[in-house]
Nucleic acid binder design. Structure first.
Lengths: 349, 349
DNA sequence: TTGAAAGCGCTAACAA
DNA sequence: TTGTTAGCGCTTTCAA
């Protein structure tokens, strides 16, 4: 397709036949020597290895794969063009798979089913050994496919509308519980939740965790929805602290951008953080949490652990195991100054 | 390596031999039919295509590549684990290459030469048709390798200590010139540059652009170095506006985090932006520039264009062209409220 | 211990 | 128009 001119100045890579010729043995012998199996005189084995090194022989994985019908490659399909969430996941995933000798095709489908289909076709043509599907948000998505039966698929940071699928997700509910409990443990009583649009599953789950923690202490809930932005955080504070109603003494925010807006607005109003109001965010996005004044306590979804686990499971599936079901992986609380607790209690992993 | 049990429940994919058998033709004929070349009766061609579709035949790229000695894959090696810069580049690159039917292996080397070497070996084993090297910062790096002669390599957002290499970089100098000129055009006279550590090539280039623009107007320069953080931006403002010295009427910042710190500190001091002091950032990182009060005018490095161009050139090289040399691609000015200019003048692309 | 040969799935040159 | 066959680079059985 891209080939304009057939002229190629590329040096052809040496093959095992070249090794055999130079070492003056049969090609079968050379193969045996290089693959460390079968018996062979140490002499010839050494010689062959030396020759291979000298002429810069490197086995052609394509040919090898053709033979073994295992390509040692997997594909990742994402729709997260910004990369905020999927990048750390991908990074850990790739690291885990690389350790196993598996290379990773990265495909961006940008929410376009046609592009997704196209990428999938390409990957299947390359006979990938497995697929990882990831996304910008954790909500359900239609299952990817159709796929050859038995092709391992892992959904991570998203899950499929299908029981059979294996998916790995952060435990939003317990993360939010942890955040809220941290606030109640510090003696806060009027804890308001400022969060994102409730069409996000993550928002709904975080609300559940928040509720559970409040119920434990017999406290009342108050929830406000808005966009995932600093501006919304500021606006929410302006509203909450302007009227006659009793003021909150803690704010649990749906993400760190909202939290940062909140912290800034409180600062503008001269309300002390954490003295008057404690603040917790979600995501542990350091660019936000560390730069805020004061730095913001937040929930870390441990995206890298998520990616590593995805790699782990994919490897298991490739080697024949059957795994299914959704698993939620634990979040952790990262304590900073915005709550007034000492950082000693941090459960950061 | 990962293969524990040889038992595989995977359905074997149909081959062209299967197609031929079912369609009751020779395997050569089937191939011809599916590759749309050579002449063939429309009848059989139709039949073969239909059969292929029915039994779900999909050509095995591995076998195809083996034959053509072209794998239709390329590798990307990055050391940018955060992904802030390399992700947009990668995204555009991948999109361009996918359009050509080329799939992309993504490898993270995290600044570790051993890991880089390992990834490279893996990629060479997979007989990739080309390599893209990218990085977290634009500075020089040792050339990647050793590589088979003639293997196309593109460095993007970094460049190699080597004349022969092809590299694509943002034009930091002219970007900084644009930013500074924008300020002078608005009548600002005392324009201070607050930037990052000068071990970054980008910092040095941006200084050059800043200087050139000042010289054009016969203005004096003043440069302050610090870390790439909001805290540094705040600190710089505190210093600049506390003494008896004449105060700046504009601040050109080395990146958007510094700019954001600057804007916030000015706000704290009750200094009007843009009324008293105009501010320009660098990177056009919307999460910073849009959330600041006021939103910050910034220089966009057009990372996507950079990625697309890298794809373009790689494709050209793969098809036989020889390209070399470093190319700097233009930045653009994205106007927001922090300078007091109307957004009409924006040269955003 | 080593060599010969079949075959992985596909393409392309040549024959029929 | 269709079929046959060699070969891409490698592994693996089977013979020598």
């Amino acid at each position: 397709m891209a080939a304009k001119k057939p002229i190629s100045t590329r040096a052809k890579a040496p093959t095992i036949r070249d090794v055999a010729r130079v070492a003056n043995v049969s090609i079968g012998t050379a193969s045996k020597a290089l693959n460390a199996n079968g018996r062979l005189s140490t002499d010839t084995r050494e010689k062959i290895k030396r020759v291979a090194l000298e002429i810069g022989y490197r086995p052609n994985d394509l040919a090898q794969s053709l033979h073994r019908s295992k390509s040692m490659t997997v594909g990742v399909i994402t729709n997260d063009s910004f990369g905020r969430f999927s990048f750390p996941i991908f990074e850990a995933l790739e690291e885990r798979l690389a350790a196993e000798g598996i290379a990773v095709f990265m495909c961006n489908a940008t929410d376009d089913p046609a592009r997704e289909r196209q990428h999938l076709d390409q990957l299947l043509g390359k006979r990938i050994d497995g697929i990882v599907v990831t996304a910008r948000r954790t909500d359900n998505r239609p299952p990817i496919g159709p796929l050859p039966v038995g092709l391992p698929v892992v959904y991570v940071f998203t899950h499929a509308d299908e029981d059979d699928a294996l998916s790995l997700l952060p435990d939003d509910e317990s993360g939010a519980f942890m955040a809220t409990q941290h606030l109640t443990a510090l003696g806060r009583k009027r804890i308001v939740h400022i969060t994102g649009p409730d069409r996000f599953e993550a928002v709904r789950l975080r609300i559940q965790g928040y509720r559970r923690a409040l119920k434990d202490q017999g406290l009342n809930e108050q929830i406000h929805h808005g966009p995932w932005s600093e501006a919304w955080g500021r606006q929410a504070v302006d509203k909450l602290f302007s009227g006659e109603a009793p003021k909150p003494d803690a704010l649990f925010c749906g993400n760190d951008q909202i939290a940062r807006g909140v912290v800034e607005a409180l600062r503008d109003l001269g309300i002390g953080v954490p003295r008057d109001v404690a603040v917790v965010g979600f995501d542990n996005w350091e660019v936000m949490t560390e730069a805020a004044r004061p730095p913001i306590t937040s929930i870390d979804m441990n995206l890298k652990a998520l990616g590593r686990e995805a790699g782990e499971r994919l490897i298991a599936m490739i080697s024949g195991q059957k795994i299914r079901g959704a698993k939620r992986m634990p979040c952790s609380l990262v304590i900073r100054k915005s709550c007034g607790a000492s950082a000693e209690n941090s459960s950061e992993v």
